[in-house]
Design a protein around this nucleic acid. Sequence first.
DNA 1: CGTTAGCTTGAAATCTGTCAATGATTGTGG
DNA 2: CCACAATCATTGACAGATTTCAAGCTAACG
Lengths: 251, 251
Amino acid sequence: MDHARVVSEPGPAIFRRLWGTGLLDAGDMHALAHLGWERREVKARNPFDPGENLCILSSGFGFRQRNTAGGVHSFVSLIVPGDICSYVFVTGNASQPVFSAATPCMLMQAPLQTVSLLCEKHPNILAAILSNLAVDKSTTEELVTSLGCRTALERVAHFLCEVEFRLRRMGLVDNMQFQFQLTQAEIGEYLALSAVHVNRTLQELRRRELIRTQGARISLLDRDELQKLAGFSLDYLQDRVQHRAAARFDA
Amino acid sequence: MDHARVVSEPGPAIFRRLWGTGLLDAGDMHALAHLGWERREVKARNPFDPGENLCILSSGFGFRQRNTAGGVHSFVSLIVPGDICSYVFVTGNASQPVFSAATPCMLMQAPLQTVSLLCEKHPNILAAILSNLAVDKSTTEELVTSLGCRTALERVAHFLCEVEFRLRRMGLVDNMQFQFQLTQAEIGEYLALSAVHVNRTLQELRRRELIRTQGARISLLDRDELQKLAGFSLDYLQDRVQHRAAARFDA
DNA sequence: CGTTAGCTTGAAATCTGTCAATGATTGTGG
DNA sequence: CCACAATCATTGACAGATTTCAAGCTAACG
């Protein structure tokens, strides 16, 4: 049984992530689809501040980047298609990291006021957004675990497992293969490794025949083994886990 | 000007953190105080799962601990008095880290249903809770920055600056001194350092005359210098930063 | 007064970073 | 369509921060 299978849903693919919470019905999806979204392009390597808009990444990859006083900056979360770019519109707290495009990105945004009205009429949508927020938080916490407890090899393996799952959930993985347009320097910045060491680590994964790369395309040759190496469990990536005792891994 | 000064507020000290958001009025505080809280004691080194209750730490220190499949476990956030122990009651997402008491702890909790009704009548309370959630998220993101970009010395210094601020906000700091009952092993588990290295790092801070310890009591001898060393800015700890361009440090 | 948990210290091992140079790939303008 | 530039990947040698191991020390506590 494939927990991350693509469920047929009544709406554009960009809302698949919200639909995946299992909290929405067809009416909610219809309302979402007709909210009057504004499209917005962001060039690779450019920052973008969604302000108080609800902003969903439609295509491309990005990070939330945290800039501190001392010139220190680091990526705190990876944003893939379907993800909400910023939760300021929910929490009202402005001192948050800013979205930074890694590849050319297409975003969809809607102003806070519109979203507020939408949530009043469709409380399930608010619940879905909060569930996404929780998963986002949980993902950053898992990153803390990675940085704290895992070696470079485990860290990179774990990262690949996570990306595969999140892209598969959006229907962007084809037979364990997916487009992965991040530079090794960017992966390093996210995983707190130097670009050089990311390179060596990827080589080691290739040597062990766990992954294969062809340009920007990557395939996981032995996902089970990779997950085992990484200590990867998809618990932290799932919305509303109702039965925690259920099977943890895909078939 | 002291940004973290204790404002006189209409309610028990335990709600000082929520009051500090600046979103509540006297009526909200009154409603909070009379919610029918249940006291709950947790022994040192014991875990506690708040489930879907709103649960606020009243005294003691704790961590949110994340346990993953491979036996890997790490602390992802520090909980001090006034902090909400778990946001499951907001997000509905159960696959979250569990509270783990470092010292003997006293908690106050109220069931989800009661809290829901409260928030319907007092929407500002929901806003305050969401603001706390945002700060909590932000704090974990800052931890990512620490683990990724800071040396052991900077990391420990940063941690001390953060704790001092958070305790001061709750009125628990007296002339740069506060009770700090964590073992070096626990600090290490949070900052991804070995207990041995935490020890050496604290020695270095003492040698530089930035801190002094007397038993479980610690005093920051030169907070400015410590903050400078750590690259500490309190942006990420504050609720609803309205004017981002304002001065960043305390006087 | 013994026991236990926590703190301190030293030496050796190791992972990862830095530096520097060389290939490979991609995109672009002529 | 090719040549050039720029970015990215790769490789090797070396340095350094942090971990691990092992042992003694201290202090709190029953």
